[in-house]
Amino acid sequence: MTAAVSIKNLRVTFNGAAVLEDITCKTRCGELTVIVGRSGSGKSTLLRAVNRLNECFPGCSTTGVVRLSLHDGQLAVYADGTCPERLRGRVGMVFQSPNVLPLSIERNMLLPQRLVRGITGRAAEEIMRRMLRRVGLFDEVCDRMDAQAATLSGGQQQRLCLARALALEPEVLLLDEPTASVDYQSARRIEDLLLSLKDELSLLVVSHSLPQTRRLADRVLLIREGRLTGQWHRGQANADAAFEKMLSTTF
């Protein structure tokens, strides 16, 4: 089976200081990978290394190899010929803190579709409704699509961001603590959604919660001070015991 995301000797520095060092790992298609680690260990940086978003910070430099397997074959993320915009159009991302456009709810969904995929009108609205239903937001916002997205609660904004990313039909989805500002019920809904998504796309999820990790993960990457210090896989021998052993020190 091919690797969905394969990372080799990844090193990321900000202004000369190494934030990630010597990361080598692989995830499989159809798996959900959870990245765990203490605050400041470099989880978000690792996610951003996959869609080259670290490059938007001044003073950041990245070395190493990241490969993605997409529908039309392998893509070397950091190869010279790879266009970052095209890459990011296929690798969706939801930020740690909800990050809505200062526009209406509807525009939040439609603008990226128009700009990135050139989809407008009925088709775009259809996708919008489908994705809002999928994240369980449609009933809450259907009567105020013209309202500013910033007037939504934190959890609603987070789900809007998720729907917005899904509307672009990514092949890889990077989620930075998708349930951080969401109540228990909505968190479970999002988890169910993620589990249902993993057949369609590759998922990399940062999580701060042990129960969530246990529910979601097919594979766990443990980051400590910028290094990959542990890996776990559902299929390995003594999986449950190994899981407890690895994560008891983290949470």
Binding site: N51, L53, C56, P84, E85, R86, L87, R88, G89, R90, M93, F95, S97, N99, L101, P102, P112, L115, V116, R164, A165, L168
Partner: peptide, 11 residues
């Protein structure tokens, strides 16, 4: 965050 938003969506 607003600066990163556009690029993260593929703009």
């Amino acid at each position: 965050d607003l600066r990163l938003l556009g690029p993260s969506l593929g703009l």
